[in-house]
Amino acid sequence: MPHAISARPPLSLPWRLLLLALLWSVIAGRDPLSWMIGLPTVVGAALMSWRLDRTLADGAGQPLADTSPGAELTLDPDRAAAPRSGSRLSLPGLLRFLPFFVGQSVLGGVDVATRVMRPRVRVAPGLQIFPMRLRDPVAQIAFLNSISLLPGTLSADLHGCVITVHALDSSLDVAAQLRRLEHRVADLFGERLGETPDRDPSPPEEAVTDG
């Protein structure tokens, strides 16, 4: 992965304005009068999201936690302390990730449907622990959400960098599946995974075609 790991700013304000303006024109249609409401909304939303993201990117994390004291999605101390590695969504990574993601979600749906539609429901639910090697907060969130859409797994908790995964069928090799997914997400964000010593470091890069 040729992407340089440097502290890049998240996404500059003009880009945000442009993207949000595009979004508004999709939502509101072609009537030019809609910009009477759209313009203040777009500017306000861009400013707010920019400030929020900058707070995150500074590695502080604390102001966010303070403004919403009870929110579940606040940063855990470990994650907040992790420096933002500057990984950015990469377009080729996205093009590689999307077909995989769509295929996996279809498999996930089919998996659940076949389990549920049998005369006797066949599940062996259980919790498993998975230490995550991704460090970028955005990549971590993308990973968490992708886990829930993969067949048989559901991200249930997050402590620092350790995910608790709920498996619908714990007899399957959930950890290997998750490692493959982690590589996919790392590729998507152009992030290089640090190796954890207690784990098999060989990345099964090409063995991802099966479910």
């Binding site: 749906g109 998996d111 659940v112 549920v116 599940v123 639910p125 859409l149 559901l154 709920h166």
Partner: peptide, 10 residues
């Protein structure tokens, strides 16, 4: 938790 599986995926 199993019900959540059904909810999100299906």
């Amino acid at each position: 938790h199993s019900r959540l599986h059904a909810l999100t995926k299906a």
